[in-house]
Design a protein around this nucleic acid. Structure first.
Lengths: 185, 185
DNA sequence: GGAAAGTGTGTACGTTCGTACACAGATTAC
DNA sequence: GTAATCTGTGTACGAACGTACACACTTTCC
């Protein structure tokens, strides 16, 4: 066949590099994330990173995009499974309190993403899309106004939970979500 | 007099360096904050940073501590000035919506602090103190439960506001805060 | 005056970084 | 087989980094 039809030796390598990047970011922070650390984590040679990605920024951009994608799907699925408003409130409470949807590692990564987004337009766009998708998921159950408030609540409570390193009072969360849902129709 | 009583040439230099550090962090992010950039911003020689601070981490730690301190004071003052519950709700709304208390620059810095705190124990403690002081300020007006919820709301909505780069609906915020204050007594 | 001691700076060193790139290996076309 | 072409890697280089430190300056003490 004319020209090109070569097969990559390791077709999943690119994804493995991105996964490794997230591990490094979560463990060391963006400020200490380097090509070499990612390469070591992924078990690939250094040159492989520059072969697959244009720059370190490009790796971070795609890694964060991947993170946002997978988390949006889980959030969407959790809310889509709720049959009614009460179940949706419970689902939101689970999102906030549980670690089934966002592990501690992912929470760490989200802060890194927010911080990095302030200095990188592409990641800022990724963050906005993540927020928009969360909002859309909430809108299937809650009013526009309630969705906005609950969205903020999820964000803020997740931060506090990560900081205080202790379990949230589930009843308090559920009461708050329910209060917002009922008052902001 | 015996031993030591030398006077520093520039007694405010240490503080100026910390202020410069915050400017650099806000402008470039922690991941691109260096001794040299801070020195340039502060208008002091490079050696001056290593003379006043043990390491770059130490500079960041003290800069973030300074940030938390000054913001806590403003938050506390805003809430202390409120004569009753309704005024407190309005004050919280101002905190979330206005930029009198937290400028856009400071919002950026707070994300940087949260992200960095995940990798630095001292800054993590600074963050916890900031959260504790915010909570204490809220507690002068709101119940324990309402304070927790409102605290999370402030945090989350500030993030969304910074992302969407548009003014929040003040009525929505006030309604939400009031709903929480009334329902979570 | 001179010695002592603390304050502050310029420079230089060793390390680590991002990235370029020559080249090796594999596959295809003939 | 050989040539061509694409995939992938090891190495090396210039730049930027954190930090140490010799030394200059200023003040204090006698």
């Amino acid at each position: 066949m004319a020209g090109a039809r070569r097969v990559a030796n390791d077709p999943q390598r690119k994804q493995r590099i991105l996964d490794a990047a997230l591990v490094v970011i979560a463990g060391h922070g963006v400020h200490r994330t380097t090509h070499r650390r990612i390469a070591e984590q992924a078990g690939v040679p250094l040159g492989s990173l520059t072969y697959h990605f244009e720059s370190l920024d490009a790796i971070l951009e795609q890694a964060f995009a991947h993170l946002g994608e997978s988390m949006s799907e889980r959030y969407g699925a959790a809310l889509a499974a709720a049959p009614d408003l009460a179940a949706a409130c419970a689902a939101v409470t689970d999102l906030i309190c549980g670690d089934e949807y966002a592990t501690e590692r992912e929470q760490t990564l989200i802060y890194e993403m927010y911080a990095y987004a302030n200095h990188n337009a592409t990641v800022a766009e990724t963050g906005r899309r993540w927020i928009a998708r969360s909002h859309a998921s909430l809108r299937t159950h809650f009013s526009e106004r309630a969705s906005r408030a609950i969205d903020a609540l999820i964000e803020g409570w997740s931060i506090h939970q990560a900081y205080e390193r202790k379990l949230l009072d589930r009843t308090l969360v559920l009461d708050t979500v329910t209060a917002i849902a009922e008052r902001l129709r």
